[in-house]
C-alpha cells in the first residue's frame, strides 16, 4: 500500500502537537497543573523532547516545500501541514511563532527577564489561538470521523440494512 508523504507528516504533526499541548498546558500555571497531576518534571520532559521532534518535522516540511518550489511543483497537497493559503498558511505562521518564542524561552537564563516574559506571554496566547483553530479544523474536516460503511468487506453480515447493504443485496 502506498502511503503519501504529506499524509504521514500531517498525522505525525498531529500526534506531536497533542503531546506538546497536554504537557505545555499543564505547565502554564497553578490552575492548570491538574492536567498532568502536578507532575511538572514529566511535563517538562515531554514538552522538551516533543519540541525537538516538532522542530525536526517543521524543518523537514520546509525542506520539502523548498524542494517543491525549486522543482516548480505547483500541485496543491491536500494533506500537507504547510501551504500558501488557508489553514496551511495559518499553521505555518503559528508554528514559526511558537518555535521562535519557544527557543527564546529555552535559553531564558541567558536573556533578560523582560525578553523571556514577553516570549512566554506570546507563546501562551498563540497556543490558545492554535488550540481553538484545531477545533475549527476538526469542524471543517469532520467527515473523516464518519465510520466507513462495511458493505463490501462482509457481505454476509448486513446488519441494520443501510443504503449500501440493500444495494449489495439487490
Amino acid at each position: 500500500m502506498k502511503v503519501r508523504f504529506d499524509f504521514v507528516i500531517h498525522w505525525l504533526y498531529a500526534i506531536i502537537w497533542a503531546l506538546l499541548g497536554i504537557s505545555g498546558f499543564a505547565m502554564v500555571g497553578a490552575k492548570y497543573g491538574w492536567l498532568l497531576n502536578f507532575n511538572y518534571g514529566t511535563a517538562d520532559y515531554v514538552h522538551r523532547l516533543s519540541a525537538a521532534a516538532f522542530v525536526l518535522i517543521t524543518f523537514i516540511s520546509i525542506c520539502y516545500e523548498v524542494y517543491r518550489a525549486i522543482k516548480r511543483d505547483d500541485k496543491h497537497l491536500a494533506w500537507f501541514i504547510f501551504g500558501r493559503s488557508g489553514y496551511q498558511l495559518f499553521t505555518f505562521i503559528v508554528s514559526l511563532i511558537l518555535i521562535i518564542t519557544g527557543a527564546l524561552i529555552w535559553i531564558c537564563t541567558e536573556l533578560e527577564m523582560t525578553v523571556a516574559g514577553f516570549a512566554l506571554l506570546v507563546h501562551e496566547y498563540i497556543s490558545y489561538i492554535a488550540l481553538a483553530s484545531i477545533i475549527w479544523h476538526i469542524y471543517m474536516k469532520c467527515h473523516a470521523l464518519i465510520w466507513p460503511k462495511k458493505a463490501e468487506a462482509k457481505p454476509n453480515k448486513t446488519q441494520g440494512g443501510g443504503k449500501d447493504a440493500t444495494k449489495t443485496m439487490v
Partner: peptide, 29 residues
C-alpha cells in the same frame, strides 16, 4: 484528545482561583 484538551483549558481558565495546596504542589513540581 483535542476536545479534552480544550475542555481542560476552559475549565482551568474559569475555575475558582488556585488553592494553597494547588500552588504548593505546582511549586514543588
Amino acid at each position: 484528545f483535542f476536545f479534552f484538551l480544550s475542555a481542560g483549558v476552559i475549565i482551568s481558565m474559569l475555575k475558582p482561583g488556585p488553592s494553597e495546596s494547588e500552588v504548593m504542589q505546582f511549586m514543588m513540581g
